[in-house]
Computed example of a mutant assay.
Amino acid sequence: MKTTLNALSDQELIHLYQGGDESGLKELIDRYKSKIYTFIYTKVRDEFLAEDIFQETFIKVINTIKTGGYNEEGKFLPWVLRIAYNMIIDHFRKEKRLPNVVSSDGFDIFEVLRFAEDDAEKKMVRSQISADLQKIIQLLPDDQKEVLIMRHFCDMSFKEIADITNVSINTALGRMRYALSNLRRLIEEHNISFQLY
């Protein structure tokens, strides 16, 4: 049975679960739990909190699927990551604070760059750049934003992105090229300087 489940697409596993077979959901969780947990952990930097948010995310996923609210054909992982991200934001809003790595309106593109010895001024500049850049990312078309987020924030290969979004690798690469090109254009239009020194 395990081999058969491995061969099924995300959508087929969801249909299986909707039909009352719990193994469909179990396979989906097994398939993506590592990526989803890692994604959450990189945002909150706390093992226990990451586990709590992971569980809350899947409770929401289960409820949404059970009530027929899931319609993201072929895009299960990006959909779950969006839910996880919203759960992270909700948590920090309740705590009345946002961590340095998360802003209320987007993803921190500088999260992958660690500058341990920055002085206060550089940190302030980087924080402003990060906030500006996050606003710009929100202006990208959804398909380009999705590829950018999956590539840079979820550390996915273009093959994984292509599989998840149901497009060819060339299309995924093309969307990434357009996303970066549009980012450059928008950065120039909004006169954002990325010079730190």
Rank of each mutant, 00 (worst) to 15 (best):
K75Q: 11
N6V: 00
A120Y: 06
L28E: 04
V61I: 06
E22N: 11
H152K: 09
E22S: 13
I161W: 00
D143W: 03
N6D: 10
Y32M: 02
P99V: 11
F58L: 08
C154T: 05
H152W: 13
R184Q: 14
D46P: 01
L5Q: 05
K35H: 09
I88D: 01
S34E: 13
D132H: 14
G68Y: 07
H152D: 11
Y197D: 13
I129Y: 01
E72L: 05
I164T: 07
K145W: 02
L98A: 02
D21L: 07
H190Q: 15
Q144D: 11
D52T: 11
S127C: 04
L98V: 06
W79D: 02
K43P: 01
D163S: 10
Q128A: 11
E12P: 02
I161E: 01
H152F: 15
I89T: 06
F54A: 04
T64C: 06
L180C: 06
R126N: 07
I129T: 04
K135A: 07
I14E: 06
V101P: 00
A172W: 03
M150P: 00
N100C: 03
M124L: 14
Q195P: 01
V102D: 02
F92P: 09
L28Q: 03
T3V: 11
E56N: 13
L113K: 14
A50T: 07
Q195R: 13
K94S: 12
N71H: 14
F48Y: 10
L133P: 03
I169F: 02
E121M: 09
Y178R: 15
G69Q: 07
K2I: 09
Q11T: 13
V102F: 00
I129D: 04
E160Q: 15
S127G: 05
E51I: 01
Q55D: 06
N166P: 00
I89P: 01
L139D: 10
H190S: 12
L98Q: 04
R45A: 13
S127P: 00
L25G: 05
L25A: 07
N166I: 04
